[in-house]
Nucleic acid binder design. Structure first.
Length: 560
RNA sequence: UGUCGUGUCGUCCAAUGGCAGGACAGCGCCCUUUGGAGGCGUUAAUCUAGGUUCGAAUCCUGGCACGACAGCCA
């Protein structure tokens, strides 16, 4: 397939580096998640960027777990991340790495810096360190422990490693510049003491490297060429460079880009974790979650997410993508590729009074008008049917051209019918619609050419399969969920109608055999996918992925 | 009020000193056995003040606005 060559400021840099032979014409990227949560759509942007660049430049792409903090990290997250990266097409081949595998090397590098007089063991506690760090506008004060001898530092650091000290009592710090206007350079901590079990190292280590110290070394060891990260690390780049320069080792180039923000969505691990822990959703893979696992379960295809990441581009300015672009992307994919089906979500009984009782006939339905090769199927038709409640109005509003007393519509793939009367219950609700059908207007017949304003989907009552359908909507009611009243947090913007469960839906018989994860378009309604967790054999549960674009909803709004 | 970074249609992204263009959203029309899809059209932007230049969104200077940074998180 022909593809337009992608272009962005990062690829421009890489192209320049290729010309100047900066990295011997190599391109090697990485995705370095911390396994402390599930991946979300923002990570998808990073994965697509890094893996995409490697692919486009015939380079390599690593998956590396930045597991330098044992107190927050778990194997469950490691497993989910591997699955998600693969699902998004991130091809790391056999290059699955863990920062924790480099702990020994990092330790030795730290010893090197100590010997160079560029690092020292500091006895200041966290509070004292904060007090001496200075502020954004004032310089910091040097630690009283800053000038310990290399021998003393080496001894102390070894004892830190051996577990002789308790958490927080000592740190190893780089000796840089307490006067630096960049706070990250004010003698930053390289190692802290943590007596905690690591998910892979167990209790081997009592000291753990901080991000800044560890990250450049990880990149250097793996011979990464372009270390792509998000904007908040821009101020850390001088430190990244300082460590690598002092160590005199292979030195990748860090490049920062703007992380993804999505309207009507939160994308911070802290907030997502809160949604899960406080059970505002059913889990990390709740179909309303902006996690990769959530989107997958909802019925988003990986192709649609990859395509979305291409469309949003890469730049350095903060931005918030309109969630409608994501919806566009999944509609585009599912429109082209999903099997059509008829499904009545809110059933209303419809009786064809002049249709023979007991008769059944087949109607030929197109499987996908966008794809001729997908063929047709037959759908049973009979005297008693269900239509959607939305498709009948006793008193039609302006511009409403579906069924109402005296009006005609076409039953898709079947006959033109006319509404003759209604049956009501004690409260005056319409519980049945009585219609006559025109026998000369079945699809395919000459008489079928007559123009009617609307076409309506239906299910034969006798053949209907009952299923559960879950209607999902955006999780938040506000474009920016963090915009709240004084004293409230983002949870106050949760959409109470984000999940509506419909238990009495009527669908075509063939949908009983739908497979987990399979996506359908329910005609005139939206795209739906078989929930992989809650469906049983023969009784699928359908998740609404996204509605169809609804022009009628807009007209209705206008006339209200 | 320190350092670093960023300011282009409603929203994203382009234009790399030479006609400000694309996508989504919106609006209008056409088409349609999905009020879907599709087609056509359309609205709409260079933060600001100077400067350099034949010519500036782009280069320079000064404002202004926004973002990130004062974890032993990443």
């Amino acid at each position: 397939m022909e593809e337009k060559e992608k272009s962005d400021f990062i690829r421009d840099i890489i192209n320049d580096d290729l010309k100047t032979n900066k990295f011997q014409r190599r391109v090697h990227t990485r995705f370095p998640p911390e396994p402390n949560g599930y991946l979300h759509i923002g990570h998808a942007k990073s994965i697509c960027l890094n893996a995409g660049i490697a692919k486009d430049f015939q380079g390599k792409f690593n998956l590396r777990f930045d597991d330098t903090n044992p107190s927050k990290e778990e194997q469950e997250y490691v497993d989910s991340i591997i699955e998600d990266v693969k699902w998004l097409g991130g091809n790391f081949e056999d290059r699955l790495f863990y920062a924790s595998d480099y702990f020994e090397q990092m330790y030795n590098f730290a010893v090197t810096l100590i010997k160079k007089g560029k690092a020292f063991v500091c006895d200041l506690n966290a509070d004292e360190m904060r007090l001496t760090r200075g502020t954004l506008t004032e310089p910091g004060k040097e630690s009283p422990y800053r000038n310990r001898s290399a021998e003393e530092n080496l001894d102390l650091f070894a004892r830190m490693k051996n577990g002789e000290y308790s958490n927080g009592t000592k740190t190893l710090r780089a000796k840089i510049d307490m006067m630096s206007p960049n706070i990250n350079l004010r003698d930053p901590v390289m190692y802290r003491i943590v007596h905690d079990e690591h998910h892979r190292q167990g209790n081997t280590w009592c000291v753990y490297p901080t991000y800044d110290w560890a990250h450049g070394i990880e990149d250097s060891i793996e011979k990464i060429t372009h270390s792509i990260c998000t904007l908040e690390f821009e101020n850390h780049r001088p430190l990244y460079d300082w460590y690598l320069n002092e160590l005199e080792v292979y030195h990748p180039q860090q490049i920062e880009f703007a992380r993804l923000n999505l309207s009507f969505t939160v994308l911070s691990k802290r907030k997502l974790l809160k949604l899960v822990e406080e059970k505002h959703v059913t889990g990390w893979d709740d179909p309303r979650m902006p996690t990769i696992a959530g989107f997958r379960r909802r019925g988003y295809t990986s192709a649609s997410i990859i395509n979305f990441c291409d469309m949003i581009g890469v730049a350095k300015r903060d931005s918030t993508i309109d969630v409608s672009l994501l919806e566009y992307s999944i509609r585009e994919d599912l429109n082209k590729h999903s099997q059509r089906a008829m499904a009545v979500l809110n059933p209303l009984k419809l009786v064809l009074t002049n249709y023979p009782e007991g008769k059944t006939e087949d109607c030929h339905a197109v499987n996908n008008p966008e794809d001729e090769a997908s063929g047709t199927r037959s759908v049973p038709f009979s005297r008693e049917l269900f239509i959607d409640q939305d498709d009948f109005k006793e008193v039609p509003p302006p511009k409403y051209y579906r069924l109402s007393p005296g009006m005609e519509v076409r039953l898709k793939y079947a006959y033109i019918i006319k509404c003759e009367s209604v049956v009501k219950d004690d409260q005056g609700n319409v519980i049945e619609v009585h219609c006559t059908y025109d026998p000369d207007t079945k699809s395919g017949m000459a008489g079928a050419n007559r123009k009617v304003k609307a076409t309506v989907h239906w299910i034969s009552a006798a053949h209907a399969k009952d299923v559960e359908v879950r209607l999902y909507d955006r999780l938040f009611v506000k474009e920016n969920p963090d915009e709240t009243e004084e004293g409230k947090d983002f949870l106050s913007n949760l959409n109470s109608g984000s999940l509506q469960i419909l238990k009495n839906c009527k669908v075509e018989p063939m949908l009983a055999n739908a497979e987990a994860g399979q996506g359908f378009q329910f005609e005139r309604t939206g795209y739906f996918s078989v929930d992989p967790k809650d469906s049983a054999n023969g009784t699928p549960v359908f998740n609404r992925v996204v509605t169809l674009k609804d022009t009628w909803a807009k007209i209705e709004q206008k006339y209200r």
